[in-house]
Amino acid sequence: MTVRVFGSLEDVKNALNQPLGPSAWLTVDQGRIDAFADATGDHQWIHVDAERSATGPFGRTIAHGYLTLSLIPHFGQQLFHLDLGQARINYGVNKVRFPTPVPVGSRLRAQADFVDLRHNAAGAALTTRYAIEIDGQDKPACVAETVTLVLEQA
């Protein structure tokens, strides 16, 4: 796994639509799921009740979709580093889908690619598409397009 470093917007532009990754695998254990439930107040039984979930639709607990989405910074730092501009801030998410539930004990990893770079008054908006895959599954756990604002030097 090699972290790609981008030192200019021109470097980013030249990397549009080129694959980044994959990242290292990360196992989603019940402790992480429970901590996310506590942090968000989402204690739905399919996430935190192992006994009830054993007879539920997935046969065991599953991670929250938003937990999977929240792992993007973890995976992103393994894939690339933007060493440019004065600061980089999250602007938002264009599209998020959760095609496959993440059962407890699953291993996840991500791949990404830059899909759009638009200059604006503040600097630039970079859209990155992430696909978070589950080891052994055909469909990804999460596909998301994030937007990062790259603020230029003042």
Rank of each mutant, 00 (worst) to 15 (best):
A110W: 01
Q137H: 15
E133G: 11
H64K: 00
T148V: 15
E152F: 00
T100A: 11
D29C: 09
W25L: 05
D11M: 05
V143D: 06
V150G: 12
Y130H: 15
A110P: 02
A144P: 02
A144H: 08
Q86I: 04
S106V: 14
T148N: 07
H64L: 05
R97K: 04
F36R: 01
Q77V: 01
A63T: 10
G76M: 09
L126K: 00
N90F: 02
H119G: 03
P103C: 11
Q44T: 09
G123L: 08
E152V: 00
V147G: 11
F80W: 08
R118L: 03
R32T: 15
D113M: 10
V28K: 10
V115N: 08
D49F: 01
T68G: 06
A141R: 01
V96D: 04
Y66E: 05
H81N: 08
G76Y: 02
P140Y: 07
R4V: 10
Y91H: 08
L151Q: 13
P57L: 07
L79G: 06
I89Y: 08
L9A: 01
L26F: 07
L16M: 10
A87V: 08
H43L: 05
T128S: 13
T27A: 12
Y130T: 09
R32N: 02
K139S: 13
G31Y: 00
L151K: 15
A154F: 06
P57I: 04
H43K: 12
R60N: 12
I62V: 12
I132D: 03
R52K: 09
A37M: 03
T100Q: 14
P103H: 13
S8T: 00
E51K: 12
R52P: 05
N120R: 04
K13M: 05
Q18R: 09
N94Y: 01
L26C: 09
V5A: 09
P101I: 04
A124G: 07
A63H: 05
V48K: 10
A110I: 00
A112P: 06
H47R: 07
L20C: 11
Q44I: 06
P19A: 04
E10D: 08
L117D: 03
F6I: 08
S8F: 06
F80I: 01
A24T: 14
T68Q: 01
A141V: 13
E145A: 04
D11A: 10
D42R: 01
I72V: 13
F80K: 14
V28Q: 10
P57T: 06
G65V: 13
R118E: 15
L151S: 10
T2P: 08
R97F: 11
I134F: 14
Q78E: 09
Q44R: 03
V3E: 01
H81K: 12
V93W: 04
L151H: 13
P99I: 02
H43F: 14
K95N: 13
K139C: 05
H81G: 07
D49S: 00
R88N: 02
R97P: 06
A124C: 12
G92Y: 01
L69F: 08
I62Y: 15
T128W: 00
N90D: 04
Y91G: 10
Q111W: 02
T61R: 15
Q30M: 15
I62C: 00
H64I: 11
H43C: 10
S8V: 02
V150F: 04
E152M: 03
L79E: 07
P101D: 01
H64S: 04
G105D: 01
